[in-house]
Each structure stands twice: as structure tokens, then as C-alpha cells.
Design a protein around this nucleic acid. Structure first.
Lengths: 97, 97
DNA sequence: TAATATAGTTTATTTTATAAACTACTTTAT
DNA sequence: ATAAAGTAGTTTATAAAATAAACTATATTA
């Protein structure tokens, strides 16, 4: 009845990141940092986890001489997000006895 | 824009517990244990946290000679749950750029 | 050229979640 | 009667996750 919630997405920051990335073609590190109010260190770690799970892709390049990390959600990531949204709904509606 | 998710409720087990308790007058430890597929130890800890936050009340008594722990959601708990449901919705809908 | 800023990563610390071990009985079988 | 197994938990120990602090590397500005 109560499905397991994907532990990769059941984290405030990672969920926020995926939630942003699902609505946009791609986003850079700094943008995500600002939108989520996260510290760079935490963001770096959590993006890496999303990448390890193949939920996002990261491309590193340079922009105006500065390093730039571009993030993009994958199909696997989109699917995982949709599943998570579906799964958590069960938790959000009170159970009738 | 992205509201903080109540850390007390943003936990799979505690969210499941509150989700069950919000739909029922009261429930006993064993019932919650079965419904959530949790271990007794974990359940004990998480119920205590919900109690410390005043989200639930616990009453210990005896039933057929065995100890019995009855759990009941409080008004504070109901409010917290409703807020959490509202807050997480923002995360669940993709953001339009 | 020294100080400050950008754009991160890595390591260390704290917090959470989970599992294992333990308490305190009760019931059932021998 | 007592040993074994079961009920209903709690406490302590361990593993995993989140977060913060420190660090790397280069660029810009004073």
C-alpha cells in the first residue's frame, strides 16, 4: 500500500533540483545554487549523487574564462521524478480507516 | 519560492505515521508497525520524535496483560501535516522557467 | 601584487535513519 | 515448575545522509 519513496529524490535539495531541472532545458550550477539557496559544497555533492543515479547529466566547460557546470535532466530522471510524485501522493492524502 | 519542508515530516516513516494518524481517531503501536512495515526500534524512535514535536500524543496502558501504546495526532500535528502537504506541492510541479 | 571574487571540489562534522541488542514481562509446551 | 518462545516495546550502536568548513584553482579589481 505505502510504496517506498525513492531515497535519491526524498531529499529536500535533490527534489528541488530535479523539480527545477524538469521544467527547463538545462541550468547552470550558479543558477541552481541561487534558486535553492544551497551552499556550493552541498550542491556539488547532491548534483554528483543525481549524476551517479543517471538522473542528470553534467557538462563542464568555461564561460567568460570561468568554469561552468551545466546540468540537464535525463529521461531516467524525468521518469524517477514522475514516479516519486505519484508515490508520495499516497502519503499526502489521509488514509480512511 | 521554495519553502522549507518541515524536517520532522520529511521522513518517510514519520510522514507515513502522520498520514495514517490523521485519518483515524487513534492507533496502537502494533497497528502502526504493521501498516508501515517498520521495525519496532525504528518505530519507537520516530514516534518519540513526533511526540517531542507535539505532533502526537501517546498513552501507555495494558491490554490483555500486555503493554499497549496508543497514538493520537494532535491539532499541532494536523496543522503541520496540512502545511507539509501544501509546501511539497510546489516541489512536485515542474517550475516553468 | 595583494586582496577579493568566481566556481566549484574535497574533507570533516553533525544529524538522521536504521539495525541490533536488550528489558520486562506473558504464554505455551514439557 | 521451568524452559522456550512470543509480545510489546526501549535503548544503544552503527550506517548513511546532510551540511558546513576548508581547500583548489583561476580571474578580476584596487
Amino acid at each position: 500500500m505505502l510504496k517506498e519513496l525513492d531515497p535519491i529524490l526524498h531529499s529536500q535539495l535533490r527534489l528541488a533540483l530535479i523539480s527545477i531541472l524538469v521544467g527547463v532545458k538545462q541550468a547552470e550550477f550558479s543558477y541552481l545554487k541561487e534558486k535553492t539557496n544551497s551552499t556550493a559544497g552541498n550542491l556539488s555533492v547532491q548534483l554528483q549523487k543525481l549524476k551517479d543515479a543517471n538522473y542528470i547529466e553534467m557538462e563542464k566547460s568555461f564561460k567568460n574564462n570561468y568554469p561552468q557546470t551545466m546540468c540537464k535532466i535525463t529521461k531516467i530522471g524525468i521518469k524517477a521524478f514522475e514516479d516519486y510524485v505519484k508515490d508520495i501522493q499516497i502519503y499526502l492524502k489521509p488514509k480512511k480507516k
